[in-house]
Simulated scan of single mutants.
Amino acid sequence: MPVAYQNIPSALTGGSKYKVDQKGGITLDDASKEKLNKQSIPYLPSWRKNEKYEPYEFIEYHDRALKADKDLTNLFPKDGKYELENLSPKFGTEIKGIQLSELNDAAKDELALLASQRGVLVFRDQDLIEKGPKAFTDFAKHYGELHIHPTSGAPKEFPEIHSVLTGNTDENPFSTKNSLISFHSDVSYELNPTGISLLSVTNNPKAGGDTVFADAREAYNRLSPLFREKLEDVYALHTAVPQANLAIVKGGVVKRHPVENIHPIIRTTPTGDKVLYVNSAFTKSIVGLKAEESEFLLKFLLDHISGGHDFQIRVNWKPNSVVVWDNRISSHSAILDFDTNEPRLIIRAAARAERPVNNLANLNKPDENNVYEGPEYLGNRVEPGSAKA
């Protein structure tokens, strides 16, 4: 059976150079560091060759949004001076005049509720990034146990920050593909995928490098009632194997053995929203269908999401911007429309959320994480770091 991985252009994996110390620590070299701004330095990706974590176990999750004051009086006090601008009628809001670092716990709960309603919240002029990785992770921890990514780099001492350095290469990213848009819901292969998430770009090109988000609730609502009914009890397999294989092929580190888990195509969130829960990065197949049938139906659903420009928004990154979004009700993609010799550093911290269900009667019902041990995983054949691209 062939090994499954995507040969991603170096513009997406980054052309920056790294060095390895005697203890197996992998860090950015000095020449690559000089191309980044000062704010990015505390967030640089790093790895340790011996860094390993056990596969996650099931957790119960209790949504902070359900504890919130529905009037949002702590997040938006009467005497506050703030501006809200909806990025589209149903999805996405830009907020000015609120410092995330100053919010109390009640306001953070209300932030989760607002994220569950608007999907994506864009905050400008934030001091959270300048305060450093600890402040960034401490804020995100309010929403639950933070997820540690199985392959990506992280700042030293802060493995919960998913740090992705791209660009910094002269390669033509479109030499083999017309588009590199890949809508995904982060780590949907996990038994407990992430929910409330924080995202920021600390080093962005002069123009471009936006992030596009799609509303998975509206993607569901646009389907006909009969089609929604047919999908109600249909499940899909989500896999981490191609991502792990890519890390090995690129000489990277797989910190946690890849998993595959089955989730409902129609997911119901704790706040009662129904969402279309498939994505092009991690959804492998539809359970119970033959290969051709699965590919046909998945292609329709994925094209429906990627082509739904009337339920998508685009976030333009400005200095000191922080996005808070609900990963359960949206999918997103980086937009590679900038000169790839410019580096782009994006950071994320995200809390593990509930096991996806289609019926809230099954919410927090214990389940087992499915660790993949099949032949498609390259790590079962070679030692990590020994394969080359």
Rank of each mutant, 00 (worst) to 15 (best):
Y5A: 00
S16F: 10
K19W: 07
D29G: 04
S32D: 14
K33I: 08
P42Q: 12
W47F: 13
E60H: 09
H62N: 15
R64Q: 14
D71I: 00
P77N: 01
K78A: 14
S88I: 06
G92D: 10
S101V: 05
E102L: 08
A112P: 00
G119D: 06
I129C: 01
F139W: 02
G144N: 10
L146Y: 03
P155I: 11
T169N: 09
P173I: 07
S175I: 06
N192G: 04
N204K: 09
K206H: 11
D215Q: 05
V234M: 15
N245F: 02
V253N: 00
N261P: 02
T269P: 01
G272T: 10
G272M: 08
V275A: 15
V278I: 12
T283S: 09
I286E: 02
E293K: 10
E295Q: 13
F296P: 02
H304T: 12
D310K: 11
D310Q: 11
Q312R: 09
A334E: 00
I335T: 15
T340E: 14
R348D: 05
R352H: 13
N358K: 06
A361L: 07
N364D: 12
N364V: 04
P366H: 11
E368T: 13
E368M: 04
N369A: 11
E373G: 06
Y377P: 03
L378S: 01
G379V: 04
P384R: 01
K388A: 11
